[in-house]
Design a binder for these strands. Structure first.
Length: 191
DNA sequence: AGAAGGATTCTCT
DNA sequence: GAGAATCCTTCTT
């Protein structure tokens, strides 16, 4: 099995961590292993970032130490997975927007209601059976609640960048940043 | 206490 | 391509 990425691996700016996460593996103790194929970076002074209007109970993990989880409910339906980057006190995170299944396909199929495509952050959350109660917890292979780990996997040879999705509310300068990272050469999109 | 709005997805057409 | 589903967080009276 791959070596886990230590917490300080995430102690870098989010736009640097995000492309480096492509090809890495998300591992759950139930045997589900996903390969990350699409990410987005969010930073401080970024009007697309949930933390840009100050710290709140929900967004507190974004201000915390690297290598922790930030999970929130989107549109009342979807649980979205973020990995906190940068040092404690500095806002930064990477949204996991898409994956492919490495292991545990039957489990994912059950959780996804018969489907196995994981293009889109809500689908990833469903495949991992994310719980917002995990938000703020550290990554680790074995823990009572947030039993989620990120391992080395196989970094990708090629990726391309695009503007981030679903952040029309942000300032134009932030909307235009090429902070969405997709594994492989230019091909399909997530929506 | 009330209201607004979303880092989305699915199902139609 | 358009519209509904759905509920929590946050901001405003």
């Amino acid at each position: 099995m791959d070596a886990l990425l230590p917490a300080d691996w995430f102690d870098r700016p989010a736009p640097e961590v995000a492309p480096d996460l492509l090809g890495r593996h998300l591992e759950l103790p139930d045997g589900v292993v996903l390969r990350i194929t699409e990410t987005e970076a969010y930073t401080a002074y970024d009007t697309a970032c949930h933390a840009n209007k100050g710290i709140t109970p929900r967004t507190a993990p974004l201000f915390g130490p690297p290598g922790h989880l930030y999970i929130y409910l989107c549109y009342g339906i979807h649980r979205l997975l973020n990995l906190v980057t940068d040092s404690e006190g500095t806002v930064g995170c990477v949204l996991i927007r898409g994956c492919t299944i490495v292991n545990g396909r039957p489990t994912v199929r059950t959780r996804r209601g018969g489907r196995t495509d994981l293009r889109g952050p809500g689908k990833v959350g469903q495949a991992l059976a994310l719980d917002v109660g995990w938000s703020g917890m550290p990554l680790a292979r074995v823990r009572p609640l947030a039993s989620l780990g990120v391992s080395e996997g196989t970094p990708v040879a090629h990726h391309h960048t695009t503007p981030r999705i679903g952040i029309d509310y942000a300032e134009p300068v932030d909307r235009d940043r090429l902070w969405r990272f997709v594994a492989g050469k230019k091909r399909s999109r997530s929506r």
